[in-house]
Computed example of a mutant assay.
Amino acid sequence: MKLSRILSNQNGVSRQQANRAIASGLVRVDGEVCTNAAREVSRFQGVVVGDKVIKRALPAHYLMLNKPAGYLSATWDPVHPTVMELLPPEIRADLHIAGRLDRASTGLMILTNDGLWSRRLTEPEIKLPKVYRVSTLRPIEPHTAQRFEEGIWFAYEGLTTSPATLEQLGPTDARVTILEGRYHQVKRMFHAVGNQVTSLHRERIGEITLPRDLAPGAWRSLEPDEVQSVPTGRATVFGKAGRLAVT
């Protein structure tokens, strides 16, 4: 919402009076004087006129979770446990999931209440790499890496996947990096080359990597550099394991 509108809505003044207050240097956004009446102010930023608080900043949460198998990537389900049940009750209602995993899959999940930030994290055009550790039912054929690099045709969507890389780690183990996040994408890619995924573990999204010492079911706040690695240019947060990250 524009700064002038916030002042006129919350402070009981006209838009003209709000503009004059802003131009005179009486208004601060997040502690800094702002003279731009058209500035967009997010719900995570506070606004003060003189000594009067006009708008309080809401806390911004950026969390990573090591998802165990058996949990749904959902906010609620009547049958199965969800990843939200692994988080403190007082913050669950405000969070949404940025990049889902199916119930059998494990690994890195991101949860936040910042919709603009999460859209940048998952937006296909940004092409942030997503890295998975994969085990397969049958040995991985030598041609698989080339097929993934060329792209796999998905008839349902009527498209070819973006080039993906496969690093073979063993006869039935590999690390796969994709630049999209289509429905069951990695499993469908292996199915297209005549194989079947038996386990899928997400290790990384962009520059955010799941720590080896974060146990299944555990969570922590993202560090400032992790949040800022997603190209939004806005958030500054601080967090420690088991604590909320806030602006």
Score class of each variant (00 low, 15 high):
T177I: 04
L26W: 01
A155K: 12
S162I: 01
S162T: 07
H201T: 05
K67A: 06
L108S: 12
H184T: 09
W76S: 15
L200Q: 10
G25V: 03
V49S: 04
E207M: 09
V53C: 05
P59T: 09
P231C: 04
A18W: 00
G233K: 02
E203C: 04
H96Y: 15
R175S: 11
M84P: 00
M109T: 08
E223K: 10
P231K: 07
E40C: 00
P142A: 09
H191I: 00
V83G: 12
G12L: 03
T136Y: 06
A215T: 05
L111F: 03
W219V: 05
G151H: 05
N19P: 00
H96M: 12
A104H: 09
I22D: 10
R234S: 04
P78S: 07
N113L: 03
A60T: 03
V246H: 10
V193T: 15
A38W: 00
S24K: 09
P129A: 08
E90H: 14
K2P: 00
K67P: 03
G12D: 13
A38Q: 14
R120W: 10
V29G: 05
E85F: 01
E167Q: 14
W117D: 14
R220E: 15
G115P: 00
I140T: 10
L63G: 07
P124W: 07
I91A: 06
A93G: 13
Y71M: 09
A174M: 02
R138E: 15
S24I: 00
H201C: 11
F44W: 08
A37K: 10
L166N: 09
V29P: 02
P89C: 02
G233Y: 08
L7N: 06
S199E: 15
Y156H: 12
S199K: 04
R43Q: 14
T160V: 11
D51S: 14
A245E: 13
E180S: 14
D225N: 10
E40S: 11
A245P: 02
V27W: 00
P142N: 06
G50Q: 05
L200M: 08
P81V: 02
L169K: 11
V197L: 12
R138Y: 13
G151R: 02
V41P: 01
V230L: 03
R138A: 14
Q17R: 08
A37R: 06
Q146C: 00
Y132I: 06
T209I: 07
T122P: 00
R243M: 05
E150C: 04
L244R: 09
A155L: 02
R120P: 00
S118M: 05
L101K: 04
L137R: 10
S8W: 01
S162Y: 09
R103L: 10
Y132P: 08
E125Q: 14
I54H: 01
E123K: 06
R28G: 01
G170N: 12
I97A: 07
S14D: 10
E150N: 13
G70P: 02
V13F: 01
A164H: 04
R133L: 14
Q196M: 06
N36D: 15
A57C: 04
N11F: 11
L111S: 08
K240Y: 13
P124L: 07
I126G: 00
R182P: 01
